[in-house]
Computed example of a mutant assay.
Amino acid sequence: MKTNRYLIETSVACLLWSGSIIACKISYGSIGPFTLGLMRFSLAAVIMLAMLAVTRDHDRPRGRDMAICAATGIVGTTLYFAGENYGALLLPASTSSLIIGAFPAMTLALESAWDRTRPDGLKAAGIALAFVGVAVLAYGESSSGGSDVVLGDLALLGGGLCWAVYNLMMRPLLGKYSTTSITAWQTLFGALGFVPLVLLTEGLPTATPAPEALLSLAYLVLGCTVAGFILYNHSLKGLPASTAASFANLIPVFGLILSALILGEAITVPQHLGGSLVVAGIFLSARS
Score class of each variant (00 low, 15 high):
1 M>S: 11
5 R>N: 08
5 R>H: 10
5 R>W: 09
7 L>F: 12
7 L>P: 00
8 I>M: 13
8 I>C: 10
8 I>A: 15
10 T>R: 04
11 S>N: 13
11 S>L: 11
14 C>V: 13
14 C>E: 09
17 W>K: 03
18 S>C: 02
18 S>M: 02
18 S>Q: 06
18 S>F: 02
19 G>E: 04
21 I>L: 14
21 I>S: 13
21 I>R: 13
22 I>R: 05
23 A>M: 12
24 C>F: 06
25 K>M: 04
25 K>T: 06
26 I>Y: 07
27 S>V: 06
28 Y>T: 09
28 Y>P: 01
30 S>C: 08
30 S>D: 06
31 I>Y: 02
31 I>R: 03
31 I>V: 15
31 I>L: 12
32 G>H: 07
32 G>I: 04
36 L>A: 11
37 G>S: 07
37 G>W: 08
38 L>D: 03
38 L>N: 02
41 F>K: 01
42 S>E: 08
42 S>T: 15
44 A>L: 09
50 A>D: 07
51 M>F: 15
52 L>C: 14
55 T>C: 09
57 D>S: 13
58 H>Q: 08
59 D>G: 12
59 D>P: 10
61 P>C: 04
61 P>K: 01
62 R>C: 10
64 R>C: 00
64 R>I: 08
65 D>K: 07
66 M>S: 05
67 A>M: 14
67 A>P: 00
67 A>F: 13
68 I>F: 12
68 I>L: 14
69 C>M: 09
69 C>V: 13
72 T>Y: 06
74 I>L: 15
74 I>G: 03
76 G>F: 07
76 G>C: 05
77 T>M: 11
78 T>L: 03
80 Y>M: 04
81 F>G: 00
83 G>T: 08
83 G>V: 06
84 E>S: 04
85 N>G: 01
85 N>S: 10
86 Y>C: 01
86 Y>K: 02
89 L>C: 08
91 L>W: 12
92 P>D: 15
95 T>F: 11
95 T>P: 00
95 T>I: 15
97 S>Q: 01
97 S>M: 07
98 L>S: 02
99 I>Y: 05
99 I>M: 03
102 A>K: 02
102 A>N: 10
103 F>H: 12
104 P>C: 10
106 M>P: 11
106 M>K: 05
107 T>K: 05
107 T>D: 03
107 T>L: 04
108 L>S: 01
108 L>P: 01
108 L>G: 01
108 L>A: 11
109 A>E: 04
110 L>R: 09
110 L>N: 03
111 E>T: 15
111 E>R: 12
112 S>K: 03
113 A>R: 14
114 W>P: 05
117 T>A: 13
117 T>E: 10
118 R>N: 03
118 R>E: 02
118 R>M: 12
119 P>K: 06
119 P>M: 11
123 K>P: 00
123 K>Q: 13
123 K>V: 12
125 A>N: 07
125 A>S: 14
126 G>N: 11
126 G>C: 12
127 I>N: 07
127 I>M: 10
128 A>T: 13
128 A>Y: 04
129 L>N: 05
130 A>T: 08
131 F>Q: 03
132 V>C: 14
132 V>Q: 06
134 V>D: 02
135 A>E: 01
136 V>N: 03
136 V>S: 02
136 V>H: 04
137 L>I: 15
137 L>G: 03
137 L>S: 05
138 A>Q: 01
138 A>T: 04
138 A>N: 00
138 A>R: 00
139 Y>K: 05
140 G>T: 08
141 E>K: 13
141 E>D: 12
143 S>E: 01
